[in-house]
């Protein structure tokens, strides 16, 4: 009876870990898409409404979820509290603060940090150019993330259960 329980426990535990790993690849893709949406909304606000970032982020936050929302909310709050800030450092801190909920790689974050460096410093045209370049870089990252996810999701799911089996066989 105990053996049966232990087997089930190990199998579900390892399987769950495998799924968790697999999910992080999927979540990276999802967050890359979400950040592209953020940039699209921002482009609309800058191009047609010319509202300050603070207001734009407030709107964007309502349309986002999870880690992306947390990072955007953090940046918005900081801008509201302190007008004189270093935008790039602020985004960096946002990513650090919510590192548990952000599934982007260092390269993905670098794309967004490069973007944040010039955010809010230029006229409409340069802001739009900055957004367009970032969007295309994020798209490339998204495609790459999809490819990696395709192979890795199945692999990690399978690997989780297999490791479980392996441990069970060795122990029994």
């Amino acid at each position: 009876m105990i053996k049966l329980f232990a087997t089930v426990f190990i199998l579900t535990g390892c399987g769950y870990l495998g799924i968790l790993f697999a999910m992080s690849y999927k979540k990276r893709v999802r967050q890359l898409i979400e950040f592209q949406q953020v940039l699209n909304l921002l482009e609309f606000d800058i191009n047609f409404l010319a509202v300050p970032l603070k207001e734009s982020f407030e709107k964007i936050s309502k349309n986002s979820g999870g880690g992306v929302k947390d990072v955007i909310d953090y940046i918005r709050e900081r801008i509201e509290k302190d007008k004189c800030i270093d935008m790039q450092r602020l985004w960096e801190r946002g990513f650090q603060r919510f590192s548990d909920e952000i599934f982007l790689t260092q390269e993905d974050k670098k794309i967004l940090l490069d973007f944040s460096k010039n955010l809010g410093c230029g006229d409409r045209e340069s802001e739009i150019n900055n957004i367009k370049i970032t969007l295309s870089r994020l798209k490339i990252a998204e495609n790459e993330a999809r490819e990696i996810a395709k192979t890795n999701v199945k692999m990690y799911r399978g690997l989780g259960f297999l490791t479980g089996f392996f441990i069970v066989i060795i122990l029994i």
Partner: peptide, 16 residues
């Protein structure tokens, strides 16, 4: 630069 950007609420484009 920093003061100017702050005066424009970190959104220079909105104050053109």
């Amino acid at each position: 630069r920093q003061i100017f950007t702050a005066v424009c609420e970190n959104s220079v484009y909105a104050f053109m």
